[in-house]
Write a protein that binds this DNA or RNA. Structure first.
Length: 270
DNA sequence: CTGAGATCCTGGGGGC
DNA sequence: TGCCCCCAGGATCTCA
Protein backbone atom coordinates (compact mmCIF):
# COMPACT_ATOMS: atom_id res chain seq x y z
CA UNK A 1 0.00 0.00 0.00
CA UNK A 2 1.72 3.15 -1.16
CA UNK A 3 2.44 5.62 1.63
CA UNK A 4 4.61 8.75 1.55
CA UNK A 5 7.93 7.06 0.62
CA UNK A 6 6.34 4.96 -2.12
CA UNK A 7 4.42 7.92 -3.56
CA UNK A 8 7.57 10.06 -3.40
CA UNK A 9 9.47 7.36 -5.31
CA UNK A 10 6.72 7.10 -7.92
CA UNK A 11 6.57 10.89 -8.32
CA UNK A 12 10.35 11.14 -8.80
CA UNK A 13 10.26 8.35 -11.35
CA UNK A 14 7.43 10.00 -13.23
CA UNK A 15 9.22 13.35 -13.16
CA UNK A 16 12.12 11.69 -14.96
CA UNK A 17 9.94 9.76 -17.37
CA UNK A 18 7.03 11.92 -18.50
CA UNK A 19 7.86 15.62 -17.99
CA UNK A 20 7.83 17.26 -21.42
CA UNK A 21 5.59 14.62 -22.98
CA UNK A 22 2.30 15.59 -24.58
CA UNK A 23 -0.92 13.65 -24.09
CA UNK A 24 -2.24 12.15 -27.32
CA UNK A 25 -5.28 10.38 -25.88
CA UNK A 26 -6.72 8.94 -22.70
CA UNK A 27 -8.37 5.55 -22.51
CA UNK A 28 -10.87 5.33 -19.65
CA UNK A 29 -12.04 1.76 -19.22
CA UNK A 30 -13.52 2.20 -15.75
CA UNK A 31 -15.13 5.65 -15.57
CA UNK A 32 -15.21 5.91 -11.77
CA UNK A 33 -11.40 5.82 -11.72
CA UNK A 34 -11.07 9.12 -13.64
CA UNK A 35 -12.88 12.01 -11.99
CA UNK A 36 -13.39 15.49 -13.47
CA UNK A 37 -15.28 18.59 -12.31
CA UNK A 38 -18.96 18.76 -13.31
CA UNK A 39 -19.34 19.41 -17.00
CA UNK A 40 -15.72 18.54 -17.81
CA UNK A 41 -15.04 15.54 -20.03
CA UNK A 42 -11.81 13.98 -18.73
CA UNK A 43 -10.82 12.11 -21.89
CA UNK A 44 -11.77 14.98 -24.19
CA UNK A 45 -9.92 17.72 -22.29
CA UNK A 46 -6.52 16.10 -21.89
CA UNK A 47 -5.18 15.58 -25.41
CA UNK A 48 -2.72 18.37 -26.22
CA UNK A 49 -1.79 18.95 -22.58
CA UNK A 50 1.95 18.80 -21.89
CA UNK A 51 3.26 17.43 -18.59
CA UNK A 52 5.23 20.24 -16.93
CA UNK A 53 6.01 18.63 -13.58
CA UNK A 54 5.28 15.78 -11.20
CA UNK A 55 5.21 16.09 -7.41
CA UNK A 56 3.66 14.70 -4.27
CA UNK A 57 1.40 15.89 -1.45
CA UNK A 58 0.71 13.39 1.31
CA UNK A 59 -0.04 10.13 -0.49
CA UNK A 60 -1.16 11.88 -3.68
CA UNK A 61 0.79 12.06 -6.93
CA UNK A 62 0.36 15.46 -8.58
CA UNK A 63 0.93 15.78 -12.31
CA UNK A 64 1.01 19.41 -13.40
CA UNK A 65 -0.18 20.18 -16.91
CA UNK A 66 0.63 23.03 -19.29
CA UNK A 67 -2.85 24.56 -18.98
CA UNK A 68 -2.37 25.00 -15.24
CA UNK A 69 -4.62 22.09 -14.43
CA UNK A 70 -3.34 19.11 -12.45
CA UNK A 71 -4.03 15.43 -12.23
CA UNK A 72 -4.23 14.35 -8.60
CA UNK A 73 -3.89 10.60 -8.21
CA UNK A 74 -4.60 8.53 -5.14
CA UNK A 75 -3.33 4.94 -5.31
CA UNK A 76 -5.02 3.71 -2.13
CA UNK A 77 -3.98 0.11 -1.50
CA UNK A 78 -3.27 -1.56 -4.81
CA UNK A 79 -2.95 1.29 -7.30
CA UNK A 80 0.00 1.49 -9.67
CA UNK A 81 1.25 4.22 -11.98
CA UNK A 82 3.73 2.72 -14.40
CA UNK A 83 5.30 4.18 -17.54
CA UNK A 84 5.35 1.66 -20.38
CA UNK A 85 6.86 1.51 -23.84
CA UNK A 86 5.03 0.40 -26.96
CA UNK A 87 4.58 -3.36 -26.97
CA UNK A 88 5.06 -3.83 -23.22
CA UNK A 89 2.46 -6.09 -21.62
CA UNK A 90 -0.42 -4.76 -19.60
CA UNK A 91 -0.75 -4.95 -15.84
CA UNK A 92 -3.80 -6.74 -14.58
CA UNK A 93 -6.49 -4.26 -13.59
CA UNK A 94 -5.41 -1.47 -15.94
CA UNK A 95 -8.33 0.95 -15.88
CA UNK A 96 -6.97 4.25 -17.23
CA UNK A 97 -4.22 4.67 -19.83
CA UNK A 98 -2.61 7.99 -20.79
CA UNK A 99 -1.09 7.73 -24.25
CA UNK A 100 1.65 10.24 -25.11
CA UNK A 101 2.54 11.50 -28.57
CA UNK A 102 5.89 9.64 -28.54
CA UNK A 103 4.15 6.27 -28.20
CA UNK A 104 4.86 5.70 -24.51
CA UNK A 105 1.96 5.36 -22.11
CA UNK A 106 1.22 5.81 -18.43
CA UNK A 107 -0.89 2.97 -17.06
CA UNK A 108 -3.06 3.46 -14.00
CA UNK A 109 -3.80 -0.06 -12.75
CA UNK A 110 -5.63 -1.00 -9.57
CA UNK A 111 -6.90 -4.49 -8.75
CA UNK A 112 -9.31 -3.29 -6.11
CA UNK A 113 -10.35 -0.17 -8.02
CA UNK A 114 -10.17 2.03 -4.91
CA UNK A 115 -7.71 4.45 -6.52
CA UNK A 116 -8.74 7.64 -8.34
CA UNK A 117 -7.14 10.11 -10.68
CA UNK A 118 -8.79 13.51 -10.56
CA UNK A 119 -8.57 16.43 -12.94
CA UNK A 120 -8.19 19.58 -10.84
CA UNK A 121 -8.70 23.13 -12.12
CA UNK A 122 -5.82 25.63 -11.69
CA UNK A 123 -7.22 27.36 -8.62
CA UNK A 124 -9.13 24.48 -7.11
CA UNK A 125 -8.13 24.02 -3.44
CA UNK A 126 -8.16 20.23 -3.49
CA UNK A 127 -5.83 19.64 -0.51
CA UNK A 128 -7.36 21.99 2.04
CA UNK A 129 -8.04 19.26 4.56
CA UNK A 130 -4.60 17.63 4.31
CA UNK A 131 -2.28 18.00 7.28
CA UNK A 132 1.35 19.00 7.50
CA UNK A 133 4.07 17.34 5.43
CA UNK A 134 6.21 15.37 7.93
CA UNK A 135 9.39 15.99 5.92
CA UNK A 136 8.82 19.74 5.67
CA UNK A 137 10.62 22.26 7.87
CA UNK A 138 7.24 23.18 9.35
CA UNK A 139 6.99 19.83 11.11
CA UNK A 140 8.93 20.52 14.30
CA UNK A 141 9.20 18.66 17.63
CA UNK A 142 7.63 21.61 19.45
CA UNK A 143 4.80 21.81 16.93
CA UNK A 144 4.23 18.07 17.25
CA UNK A 145 3.98 18.40 21.05
CA UNK A 146 1.28 21.03 20.53
CA UNK A 147 -0.60 18.86 18.06
CA UNK A 148 -0.80 15.98 20.53
CA UNK A 149 -1.72 17.92 23.63
CA UNK A 150 -5.14 17.16 25.00
CA UNK A 151 -5.83 14.44 22.43
CA UNK A 152 -7.23 11.24 23.90
CA UNK A 153 -7.03 9.30 20.64
CA UNK A 154 -4.46 6.48 20.49
CA UNK A 155 -1.16 7.79 19.15
CA UNK A 156 -1.27 5.34 16.25
CA UNK A 157 -4.70 6.57 15.16
CA UNK A 158 -3.38 10.12 15.29
CA UNK A 159 -0.43 9.22 13.06
CA UNK A 160 -2.79 7.72 10.47
CA UNK A 161 -5.05 10.82 10.39
CA UNK A 162 -4.21 12.53 7.09
CA UNK A 163 -5.81 15.76 8.30
CA UNK A 164 -3.10 16.06 10.97
CA UNK A 165 0.01 14.72 9.27
CA UNK A 166 -0.14 13.82 5.59
CA UNK A 167 1.47 10.68 4.21
CA UNK A 168 1.89 8.22 7.09
CA UNK A 169 0.12 4.88 6.64
CA UNK A 170 0.01 1.64 8.57
CA UNK A 171 3.53 0.45 7.76
CA UNK A 172 5.39 3.61 8.79
CA UNK A 173 3.14 4.30 11.78
CA UNK A 174 4.04 0.85 13.17
CA UNK A 175 7.72 1.24 12.36
CA UNK A 176 8.05 4.77 13.79
CA UNK A 177 6.30 3.79 17.04
CA UNK A 178 8.61 0.81 17.41
CA UNK A 179 11.65 2.97 16.69
CA UNK A 180 10.56 5.47 19.36
CA UNK A 181 9.66 2.76 21.86
CA UNK A 182 6.04 3.87 22.19
CA UNK A 183 2.97 1.65 22.67
CA UNK A 184 0.58 2.18 19.70
CA UNK A 185 -2.56 2.30 21.85
CA UNK A 186 -1.25 4.96 24.23
CA UNK A 187 -3.42 8.11 24.30
CA UNK A 188 -1.63 10.87 22.39
CA UNK A 189 -1.80 13.27 25.33
CA UNK A 190 -0.16 10.72 27.64
CA UNK A 191 3.17 10.82 25.79
CA UNK A 192 5.94 12.61 27.67
CA UNK A 193 7.73 15.44 25.88
CA UNK A 194 10.87 13.33 25.43
CA UNK A 195 8.70 10.57 23.98
CA UNK A 196 7.09 12.98 21.48
CA UNK A 197 10.55 14.19 20.49
CA UNK A 198 11.71 10.61 19.97
CA UNK A 199 8.62 9.92 17.89
CA UNK A 200 9.12 13.05 15.81
CA UNK A 201 12.67 11.98 15.06
CA UNK A 202 11.56 8.40 14.34
CA UNK A 203 8.89 9.53 11.87
CA UNK A 204 11.31 11.71 9.93
CA UNK A 205 14.03 9.07 10.08
CA UNK A 206 11.92 6.12 8.96
CA UNK A 207 10.35 8.08 6.10
CA UNK A 208 13.74 9.29 4.88
CA UNK A 209 15.31 5.86 5.12
CA UNK A 210 12.37 4.33 3.25
CA UNK A 211 12.65 6.92 0.47
CA UNK A 212 16.35 6.07 0.28
CA UNK A 213 15.39 2.45 -0.33
CA UNK A 214 12.68 3.38 -2.84
CA UNK A 215 9.80 2.31 -0.61
CA UNK A 216 8.36 -0.88 0.83
CA UNK A 217 6.96 -3.70 -1.33
CA UNK A 218 5.04 -5.96 1.03
CA UNK A 219 2.11 -6.31 -1.31
CA UNK A 220 2.19 -5.29 -4.92
CA UNK A 221 3.71 -1.83 -4.79
CA UNK A 222 5.99 -1.01 -7.70
CA UNK A 223 7.45 2.33 -8.73
CA UNK A 224 6.96 4.24 -11.98
CA UNK A 225 9.39 1.90 -13.73
CA UNK A 226 7.63 -1.21 -12.44
CA UNK A 227 10.41 -1.98 -9.92
CA UNK A 228 9.94 -3.10 -6.32
CA UNK A 229 11.26 -1.17 -3.33
CA UNK A 230 13.75 -2.42 -0.75
CA UNK A 231 12.48 -1.32 2.67
CA UNK A 232 10.51 -4.55 3.22
CA UNK A 233 13.90 -6.14 3.91
CA UNK A 234 14.61 -3.93 6.91
CA UNK A 235 11.18 -3.70 8.56
CA UNK A 236 11.36 -4.16 12.31
CA UNK A 237 7.76 -5.01 13.23
CA UNK A 238 5.27 -4.54 10.38
CA UNK A 239 3.86 -7.95 9.46
CA UNK A 240 6.36 -9.66 11.82
CA UNK A 241 3.84 -11.40 14.08
CA UNK A 242 5.61 -14.08 16.15
CA UNK A 243 9.10 -13.01 15.11
CA UNK A 244 11.66 -11.64 17.57
CA UNK A 245 11.87 -7.91 18.21
CA UNK A 246 15.16 -6.72 16.63
CA UNK A 247 15.87 -4.67 19.78
CA UNK A 248 15.01 -6.97 22.66
CA UNK A 249 14.16 -10.36 21.17
CA UNK A 250 10.60 -10.48 22.57
CA UNK A 251 8.04 -11.96 20.20
CA UNK A 252 6.24 -9.30 18.13
CA UNK A 253 2.47 -9.26 18.63
CA UNK A 254 -0.34 -8.27 16.32
CA UNK A 255 -3.31 -6.40 17.78
CA UNK A 256 -6.11 -4.40 16.18
CA UNK A 257 -6.43 -0.65 16.70
CA UNK A 258 -9.22 1.21 14.89
CA UNK A 259 -9.84 -1.79 12.60
CA UNK A 260 -6.18 -1.85 11.53
CA UNK A 261 -3.60 -4.54 12.09
CA UNK A 262 -0.94 -3.23 14.46
CA UNK A 263 2.42 -4.91 15.03
CA UNK A 264 4.53 -4.02 18.05
CA UNK A 265 6.73 -5.24 20.88
CA UNK A 266 5.00 -5.50 24.26
CA UNK A 267 8.36 -5.38 25.98
CA UNK A 268 10.10 -2.32 24.56
CA UNK A 269 7.12 -0.23 23.46
CA UNK A 270 5.60 1.34 26.55
C1' DC B 1 -15.11 18.97 17.29
C1' DT B 2 -14.67 13.93 17.92
C1' DG B 3 -15.31 9.34 17.15
C1' DA B 4 -17.70 5.11 15.42
C1' DG B 5 -19.21 2.53 11.66
C1' DA B 6 -20.28 1.55 6.80
C1' DT B 7 -18.67 1.52 2.21
C1' DC B 8 -15.96 0.26 -1.76
C1' DC B 9 -13.23 -4.25 -4.10
C1' DT B 10 -10.53 -8.53 -5.15
C1' DG B 11 -6.95 -11.85 -4.13
C1' DG B 12 -5.62 -14.85 -0.91
C1' DG B 13 -5.80 -17.52 3.28
C1' DG B 14 -8.19 -20.59 6.55
C1' DG B 15 -11.43 -24.18 7.38
C1' DC B 16 -13.30 -28.39 6.00
C1' DT C 1 -8.36 -30.54 -4.93
C1' DG C 2 -11.96 -27.37 -4.44
C1' DC C 3 -15.39 -24.62 -2.42
C1' DC C 4 -17.07 -21.22 0.74
C1' DC C 5 -16.36 -17.62 3.88
C1' DC C 6 -14.07 -13.85 5.45
C1' DC C 7 -10.90 -10.21 5.63
C1' DA C 8 -7.39 -6.37 4.65
C1' DG C 9 -7.11 -1.58 4.07
C1' DG C 10 -7.25 4.44 2.71
C1' DA C 11 -10.33 7.81 2.18
C1' DT C 12 -14.90 9.49 2.49
C1' DC C 13 -19.41 9.74 4.04
C1' DT C 14 -23.15 9.40 7.48
C1' DC C 15 -24.64 9.45 12.02
C1' DA C 16 -24.45 9.99 17.04
Amino acid sequence: MPELPEVETIARGLANAIVGKTVASVEIRLPKMAVAPPGVDFARELPGERVVGVGRRGKYVITRLSSGRSLVTSLRMTGRLVVQRPGEGEYKGTHVVFHYTDGTRLSFADLRTFGRTRLVEPDEPWDGSLGIEPLSSGFTPEGFIGMLSGRTTPIKVFLLDQQRIAGIGNIYACEALWDAGIKPGKPAKALSKPAVRRLHRAIVDVLQRAIGMRGTSVDDYVDAEGLRGGFQNVLAVYGKHGQPCPRCGTSIVRTVIAQRGTWWCRSCQR
